Simulated assay, not measured.
Amino acid sequence: MIRFRHSGEIWSDFPQLVAGVIHAEDAHTDGEHLERYWRIAAERLAAGPESGLPEIQAWRQAFTRLGLKPTQYRCAAESLLRRFRKDGSLPSIHPLIDLGNAISLAFAIPVAVLDAGTLDGLLEVRYATGDEKYLAFSGETEHPAPGEVIFADEHGHAHARRWTHRQSARSAVSPATRSVLIVAEALHPGAAHDIPRLLTALGDELPGSVSAVLTREAPEFRT
């Protein structure tokens, strides 16, 4: 069973949050439409830098509230947009990650693509206690500071640090991945409109997937 939710404290502190979750078994994509999403991102960036987009501004405000310097710790969508603006493209990593990154660019919303087979029980976005373990891509084990927002499972593994800043190597998608859990989170005023559109875009690329929009009133996803 796949279970995902945000803690009550997160909903209380960020009531404007809208989250979209999608689970796909035997997940695969051919990457046929990536350039379409890149074009959307390029058109938006032509009007100004990513820092001026309302989706990014909302995450910067959230990071500031959490005590993080927003130009040091950027949400994943802002980091992708910065790289795309400078290079004009993104490197290919894995078809499912490439898809998530392309849609993240188009919507300017952080999209986390996790190997669902690595998740132990409930995955919850919550404040860290300081006891959790985070596996960095360098291979080092880190301990998120108490109060940091993380994606944590029931066994104390942190699958993301600083909320939407960086994922963990523990749940990274690999050639062996067969089941994925994809999470998109937005805080800007248009989030209630944009998250369902983002889920539709993902669902069109992942036939047979199951998705849901999470809100404070309906906070948990399970399959």
Rank of each mutant, 00 (worst) to 15 (best):
E50R: 00
R60S: 12
G203S: 14
D153R: 06
L206N: 04
E9F: 06
L68P: 00
E217S: 14
E132T: 04
L90V: 00
E148N: 09
D13K: 08
T200E: 09
H159F: 08
P95K: 14
V149L: 15
P175F: 15
V173M: 11
H28I: 02
G203T: 14
I195T: 03
L181I: 03
A160F: 07
H23N: 02
R3I: 02
K69F: 02
E148L: 01
W163L: 00
S89K: 03
I195G: 01
G88V: 07
V125F: 01
Q61I: 12
F63W: 07
G117I: 09
I40E: 10
A112Q: 11
H6L: 14
P175D: 14
T64C: 12
R216Y: 01
P54R: 11
G52R: 11
F107H: 04
E185T: 10
S171N: 04
R83H: 14
P146Q: 11
A102Y: 07
Q72M: 10
A128V: 07
G156F: 10
P144I: 02
T177P: 07
L34N: 01
A112H: 08
I103N: 15
Q72P: 00
S89N: 07
E78H: 10
S79T: 08
L99T: 00
A47N: 06
A184D: 15
I93W: 09
L122T: 09
G88E: 13
V210W: 02
D194N: 05
V125G: 01
L90R: 10
L119S: 02
L122M: 06
D115R: 03
L96I: 13
A218H: 13
S209L: 06
L90E: 07
A19R: 00
E220Q: 09
H143Q: 13
N101V: 03
K86E: 12
A191P: 06
A152Q: 03
G100R: 14
A136E: 09
A218Y: 07
A192R: 06
S138L: 05
R178L: 14
L68E: 08
S104N: 04
K69D: 15
L119K: 09
G48A: 02
N101W: 00
E50T: 02
L66W: 14
I10Q: 01
